Amino acid sequence: MLIIAWELTAACNLSCQYCRASASHEPDRDELDTDEAKRFVESIAPLKPMLILSGGEPLLRPDLFPIIRRAVSLGIRVSLASNGTLITTELAEKIADSGVSRVSISLDGADAAMHDLGRGQGSFEQATKGIENLRGRVDFQINFTVTRKNQSELIRIFDLAEKLGAAALHI
């Protein structure tokens, strides 16, 4: 299966210490507009990929759901990669209704003490609340990047993923 990971926006509500996407609080001026984004989706549809929409934080993009709906209407399997902090009950319903097949939430530790070190105070609580809001509506997975600081968390993050009902744990 072909997988396309698209950093849909640079905008993000967090300022993670190690962000590989160089995210900022504002979208990048060179991001595709809605029509361009839909044309991009149409151009990849013949490849029958799985499309992972990430960022930054893709949930900050105002036209996210029209882009998702266009991709799904073309038979593309769509996943979201999110920090989870913005996922309210209402947004979880909207995600499920749009046809997203899975949401990945990044956690850097099995508790706030470890996770919040790199992502900001309160981000663990917000992310796990986002996960709770997704539960029963759309599959979710937990992404965990192993670092020197959190390598001792591996067993605990596995246990947390099971407890939360994650469909997968990607390390």
Results as ranks from 00 to 15, higher is better:
1 M>A: 15
73 S>F: 04
127 A>R: 01
120 G>V: 10
112 A>C: 08
88 T>Y: 07
103 V>M: 05
80 L>M: 09
107 L>K: 01
131 I>P: 00
155 I>Q: 14
157 I>F: 04
122 G>E: 04
89 T>S: 15
160 L>F: 09
130 G>A: 12
121 Q>A: 12
116 D>L: 09
18 Y>R: 00
5 A>W: 05
80 L>G: 07
142 I>F: 03
40 F>T: 10
12 C>N: 01
47 L>T: 02
96 A>P: 02
105 I>E: 01
42 E>D: 14
96 A>G: 11
25 H>E: 12
34 T>G: 05
82 S>E: 05
155 I>W: 12
26 E>A: 09
76 I>L: 05
49 P>R: 13
170 H>M: 14
77 R>M: 14
170 H>E: 02
157 I>A: 04
168 A>R: 11
103 V>L: 04
134 L>H: 00
146 V>I: 13
44 I>K: 06
89 T>Q: 14
82 S>G: 05
55 G>D: 13
99 G>Q: 03
161 A>W: 08
145 T>K: 01
97 D>F: 08
52 I>K: 04
61 R>Q: 02
94 K>M: 14
57 E>Q: 03
19 C>V: 11
49 P>E: 10
119 R>F: 14
56 G>R: 10
167 A>T: 04
128 T>S: 07
81 A>I: 13
160 L>E: 01
100 V>A: 10
146 V>H: 00
30 D>M: 12
79 S>C: 14
123 S>L: 10
65 F>V: 00
169 L>V: 06
121 Q>M: 07
65 F>P: 00
71 A>S: 13
149 K>A: 15
140 F>W: 05
126 Q>R: 15
28 D>R: 14
61 R>G: 02
1 M>C: 10
53 L>Y: 13
89 T>W: 14
64 L>E: 02
137 R>V: 09
66 P>A: 13
52 I>C: 07
124 F>T: 01
36 E>T: 09
83 N>K: 07
105 I>L: 10
1 M>G: 15
33 D>S: 06
95 I>K: 00
88 T>F: 11
7 E>C: 06
58 P>G: 01
54 S>F: 12
122 G>Y: 03
66 P>T: 12
12 C>K: 01
159 D>K: 15
57 E>K: 08
64 L>F: 08
118 G>L: 08
72 V>P: 00
32 L>V: 12
136 G>L: 09
35 D>F: 11
152 S>C: 05
165 G>K: 04
144 F>D: 01
167 A>L: 05
16 C>S: 05
92 A>Q: 07
83 N>F: 11
169 L>N: 08
132 E>G: 13
68 I>E: 07
24 S>M: 12
